[in-house]
Structures are given as C-alpha cells and as structure tokens.
Design a protein around this nucleic acid. Sequence first.
DNA 1: ATAGCCATGTAACCAGTTACATGATTTC
DNA 2: GAAATCATGTAACTGGTTACATGGCTAT
Lengths: 186, 186
Amino acid sequence: MSRTVPEVKAYAGELNSTAASLLGFLHGGPASGYELVGIAEGLIGDFWSLTRSQVYRELATLSARGLITAGPVGPRARRRYELTETGRVAFAAWLAEPPGPEQIRYPLLLKLAFGSSIDRDTLRGYLVEHRVMHERRLKRYYDMADNIDDKLLRSTVRFGIHYERGVLAWMDEVAESLDVPDAEEG
Amino acid sequence: MSRTVPEVKAYAGELNSTAASLLGFLHGGPASGYELVGIAEGLIGDFWSLTRSQVYRELATLSARGLITAGPVGPRARRRYELTETGRVAFAAWLAEPPGPEQIRYPLLLKLAFGSSIDRDTLRGYLVEHRVMHERRLKRYYDMADNIDDKLLRSTVRFGIHYERGVLAWMDEVAESLDVPDAEEG
DNA sequence: ATAGCCATGTAACCAGTTACATGATTTC
DNA sequence: GAAATCATGTAACTGGTTACATGGCTAT
C-alpha cells in the first residue's frame, strides 16, 4: 500500500448542494442572504428549492469555515458576503464531483397509488387541478427559454419543458383510463 | 355565521405523507417496521423515498396517537403494528385532502446551471452516467407495468415511463447542443 | 459450535419548513 | 408623521440521512 497523504492543501471539506450553489452565485459579486434567495429562486428555484432560513444558516457556516467573509452590517442588519479564495476552491471541488441521482416526491402519485380507496371524481379533480399548474409552468418555461443566453442554463429550462410535456401526456393518459369502466380493462 | 362545531368526532390530526402511506399499507394487515420499509420501497419507492429510521419514528408517533397499536415483541425486538379504527379514519381524511405540488431536486441540473465553469468533457461524462441509469429505470418500468393489475398503481408506473422518456429525450438534446461549438449558437 | 451474515431497531446528526420578529421605506 | 408595506433576519420544529448496535439464523 502506498503512503497515504493526510495533509491536503487548502482542503475545504464537503459542501452540500445548497451551500455550493450559494458559493456559485457569489462568483458574481458580494450579496446578502436576502439577495441570494432572490437570485436562487430565479435561476435554480424550479429544480432546487431553498428557503431563507436555509440560506442564512448556510451563510453562517460557510463564513465560519472561511469560504466567505461577511462585510459590514448595513441597514436592517443586512450584510453582504464575499467569496474567498478557499471558497472558490471548494466550489470548484464540488463541481468536479459527479452529481447524484435526482429525487422526486410527488404527493399526487402517492394518493394515486392508494387510489382504489378514492372515488373517481375526486381523483379527476386532483388531476385537473394539477394539470393547470403544469400547463402554466410549461408556458413559463417556453418564455424563459427564449430569453436565456447561457446555453447550459437554458438547457436546465429545457429540462423543465421536457418534464412538463411528459407530465401532461401522462395526465391525459390517466384521465382517459379513468373514464374506462373497470370491467373493460385489458 | 352558523354555529361552529368545536368537537370533531375521532379527529386524528394532521398526517404527513410518509406516515399516511404507512397507514395505507397497514390496511393489508399488521406489519413490522422492517416489513413496511420493504413494502414501501417496492410500491412507492420510485417517487416517495423513505428510510428505516423514518419509518420507525413515524410508527412510534402513530402508535402514541392511537392510529396503530403495537403487537407483542417477537424475535430481534420485532413487533408488528396494527391499524386502529382511528387510523383508518385518519388515512381516509388524508386521502381526501388535495395533494400538494411535486418536489424535484436534481443535482445534475444544478451543476449544469453552473456549467460554464466545467469543462465540456466532464459534463458529457455526467450526462452519459446518468443516461444509463435512466435507461435502466425506463426498462424496469416497462417490465413492471406489464405485471401490475391495479389500474391506478399501474398509472404511477406509467408516470415513471413518461418521465424517463422525457429525461432521455432531454439528455439527447443537451448532448447534441454540447457538440455545437459556442460560436455557432443561434 | 463458531464465523459470518441478515434482520431489526436506535441514536445522532443534518437539511428543510413554518412561524415569528423587527427595523427601514414608502405613501398619503 | 402615522399606517402600511417590504426587506431582512432568527428561532423552533419537523422531516430525512448516516452511522451504529445487536440479536438471531445459516452454513459448515
């Protein structure tokens, strides 16, 4: 066995994805927690939700770890955080790790799985409610895609488009199958 | 304003979806935590992940709330839980609530969003890795769909099929766009 | 009969959500 | 200049993940 190397220069430790994304945004210049929430919602909110509380907590620990530094306290206790060199390194290291699998939690599917205990009209109601939501999102994604210059960022919106299309097609299929009396099933 | 009714017969309080699904499974007869984890993974694991620890915790609180009752302790401290009448009511109430929106967290999208800082070959690598995973899942869903009798349960698998198809189509699109030199973009 | 594996559960920790607090800005 | 609104942050709680503990079963 070759000699292990216990000392890694400027090792910054593991980063969770939320913290990493904050570092990512801070590449664009210092920002406060509140501002970061806004930026994140706009850019990654559709596939990576985060809340204010989370952001503040991450900022606190990132700061304690030296990956960012807090600027002076402004009005309403606001303070902007700035990326440090170590922070840059940590972010780059995070980017270089292969991303894990996605995680989906869809309560509608859950209720559908137990659907035999629900009456059909209630189910139909759930479906149409969600359908309008998905249609709206799809429309919004189309609009967004037209206005994004960055190729890769646009590709994340393209994901949304493919996803919503798939969901809508699925919903139509389910709605149709709900209309078939049980006796006729194949 | 009509007289409010402060006493709700057998009101069982709110249920989170994970707890609710346990109640759902217990309709099929008593089961232990370990068994429930297995059942859940098989039936809803693809769109509603849960872990053993979660299950045990939920069982404990469900039991404390009287929605299930614990049977005798067997080997390895195993005990089976049984649904109570209150539990049935609570489950039905949960089913009757409209389901909330889905939640997606896809680290690949996150890294893509910051993709301008990653070199293209690394990105391509991430994509192919995930692609094989999605292909495998799609294949599995096709197999599953053929063997599920329950119409609605099958429709949840159909969701998976539509979803995976969408993801694969998206991946092909992104891969193609990665091959286009940046200068040529439209 | 003992070594190793599997079934089962627990504890500690980390991430995400909800609800709250409060100090600036605007508006009339 | 008081009321309403918005920006900003904090605290408490719930849900999710990782790592650990251990007793029973199987095979040789």
